[in-house]
Write a protein that binds this DNA or RNA. Structure first.
Length: 326
DNA sequence: TCCGTCTAGTGATTTATCTC
DNA sequence: GAGATAAATCACTAGACGGA
């Protein structure tokens, strides 16, 4: 052992107490006198002592680290500011609870093992948050086999009754946005997406469903377009883009000579890029930071074996808004 | 030389027992 | 009751040792 290293033993020697007493002071035990507590705390402060998390983990069988697995192959995730807002929410809660945050990917080595698999098998973390795109039967089995607590972020597509989820209410978000456009006087409100996205992402299917139901309630015909041409042919007054990617795609196409000049734009959640637009964007706010926070709270509750941990937390959308440009 | 077994050590915590 | 002490525990590694 490095003699210069400050350990609990060293603190105990300097304070003239036993290391078990220092441990009790660190953990707020009630059976320590105020005098001893103050003395130990003074030494701890004087020597700037911080308990060794690895050794602590050794004793309590914990790592005090929470992992987030992302799909590094999904470039859309990194291009999407949703992703960073969500991470911010997770990190806020994790760090406030004295845990650390580990980002890992599905990156595979030559032997076929992924970083995610290794982290789970080697118990490098106490729990995992993973996006729904990575939640599948194989990962479910892996996590269950190693008794690794986990929470899924995103759409509740399939599942096992024992899985905890956090998701945004995408149907309600679509409803708010459609109603916003209706209140602004638009009637030919159409939705824009692409077939691949419908098949791939359940949240898009939910948004389409929310849009369809609202249009039906308003007594208006719903129409889901997958091209600018279809929007033009339908005399679109307002177009709801299912994702920001699709919104940018639409703007690019119109800039390339496929005009859709009069149609109002609508989408889900705000984007810092809206300030550079030369037209207004109607959007419905989604608190993704809160979504991340809820996922982290849920996971910590499971790790710490709290009772009555909910299985599903749904984050409601805010009121619809319009970007500042007029 | 290789292989298997045993032991000590790592740091913090917990627990049982003891002393004051 | 407050606090000290010793041992066990956690999971793993390094090194020593003996036998083949």
């Amino acid at each position: 052992m490095n003699e210069n290293k400050i350990t609990i033993q060293k603190i105990a020697e300097l304070a003239g107490v036993n290391k078990a007493t220092v441990s009790r002071v660190l953990n707020g035990s009630a059976t320590i006198s105020q005098k001893t507590k103050e003395k130990v705390e003074r030494i701890i402060k004087e020597y700037n002592y911080t308990p060794n998390t690895i050794a602590r983990g050794l004793a309590v069988n914990k790592t005090f680290t929470v992992g987030f697995c992302h799909d590094y192959k999904d470039k859309r995730a990194f291009a999407n500011h949703f992703f960073y807002k969500m991470l911010q929410g997770i990190e806020n809660v994790i760090y406030d609870n004295d845990y650390l945050f580990l980002m890992m990917s599905r990156h595979e080595r030559e032997d076929g093992t992924s970083m995610f698999e290794r982290v789970v098998k080697e118990r490098r973390v106490d729990g995992v948050i993973l996006p729904s795109s990575l939640y599948n039967e194989a990962n479910y089995r892996l996590l269950k086999e190693h008794r690794m607590p986990f929470v899924v972020l995103g759409e509740r597509e399939f599942g096992h009754s024992d899985v905890r989820w956090v998701d945004v209410d995408n149907r309600q978000a679509a409803q708010l946005l459609t109603e916003r456009l209706y209140e602004n006087g638009y009637r030919r409100i159409h939705l824009y997406t692409d077939q691949e996205a419908i098949a791939r992402d359940k949240f898009i299917a939910d948004r389409i469903d929310g849009y369809n139901r609202t249009m039906e309630k308003l007594g208006l015909p719903a129409f889901v377009a997958t091209s600018v041409g279809e929007l033009q042919a339908r005399g679109t007054e307002a177009v709801i883009c299912c994702t920001h990617e699709q919104l940018f795609e639409l703007l690019k196409e119109t800039a390339d000579g496929l005009p859709l000049p009069d149609a109002e734009l609508g989408t889900f959640d705000e984007n810092p890029m809206f300030q550079y637009f030369k037209r207004t964007v109607h959007y419905v706010s989604i608190d993704l930071e809160k979504m991340g926070e809820q996922a982290a709270h849920l996971l910590l509750s499971i790790i710490n074996q709290k009772e009555d941990v909910p299985h599903f937390v749904q984050i409601p959308a805010f009121l619809a808004r319009t970007s500042d440009f007029e």
